Amino acid sequence: MIDVTYLKRLFLNRGDDLFNRLEEIGDLIEYGTLNRDDVINITEYALDLAIVEENFAIKESLFRIIANAVTFQEVAKTIEWDKLANVIPTLNDPILDYALTIIGASKNQKFINVIEPYLNSPTDYIRETAAEALVEINYDPEKSQ
């Protein structure tokens, strides 16, 4: 079982196996059947950790956990993403790719202005991710039927 307490312990101890443990959490969120409240709490806590994390590999693993929760556990609409939106301009491209996808999955129109500048990114995959995020925000399954 994974929960916020487990994640907190991992970061308090910050052992050599932290990266591997985070990858395992990401896999559990992707493939496991988990308690929705635990997933939401882990996602929110992982976001707080990811925003301040300085180690690139650890930061990327945290963003993978968040992206997996959004994609596979469908928690994007239940989490407030303002903290993420505020730090998007500070993120480097690999993590920015995750962040734009996450913000797009929120379907929150208030983030359109956060995403739009990345349509002009010099990096091809960032432009593509920004375009996909805008499509996702604006996608209404009711209108596509």
Rank of each mutant, 00 (worst) to 15 (best):
V87R: 03
D27K: 12
P117I: 03
E136R: 13
L28R: 11
E30T: 05
G15I: 06
I40M: 07
L10K: 04
I79A: 02
I126T: 03
K59S: 04
A69V: 03
V70S: 13
I88V: 15
L96D: 05
E116S: 13
P94I: 04
L91A: 09
D82A: 09
Q73K: 15
F19N: 05
E30R: 11
A133D: 04
L100R: 00
I79R: 00
E142P: 06
E80Q: 12
T90G: 01
W81L: 11
I51D: 00
A67P: 01
A131K: 15
T123F: 10
L134E: 11
R64H: 07
D97M: 06
L18Y: 06
A76M: 08
L18R: 03
K107M: 10
F63M: 02
N35F: 06
R21E: 15
I25H: 00
N20G: 05
I102H: 03
E24A: 12
N41K: 13
A50P: 01
D124A: 11
I42C: 04
V4A: 07
E53G: 02
N20C: 06
K143Y: 13
E54M: 05
R21K: 15
I115C: 02
I42M: 09
G104W: 01
K107H: 15
T101K: 06
F72Q: 05
S61T: 06
N20M: 09
V114K: 05
N120Y: 14
V87E: 06
I103T: 03
V135F: 12
E132Y: 10
N35K: 13
Y118E: 03
M1K: 14
D3P: 06
A133K: 05
A69N: 04
L10Y: 07
D82N: 13
E128Y: 07
L62K: 00
F111A: 01
D93I: 09
L28P: 01
I29H: 01
G104R: 02
L10H: 02
L119Q: 07
A67D: 12
R64Y: 07
I88H: 05
N92P: 01
L134H: 11
K107N: 13
L134Y: 08
K83I: 08
E136Q: 13
E128V: 10
K77G: 14
K143W: 11
N55Q: 12
P94E: 03
G15T: 08
E23W: 11
N86T: 12
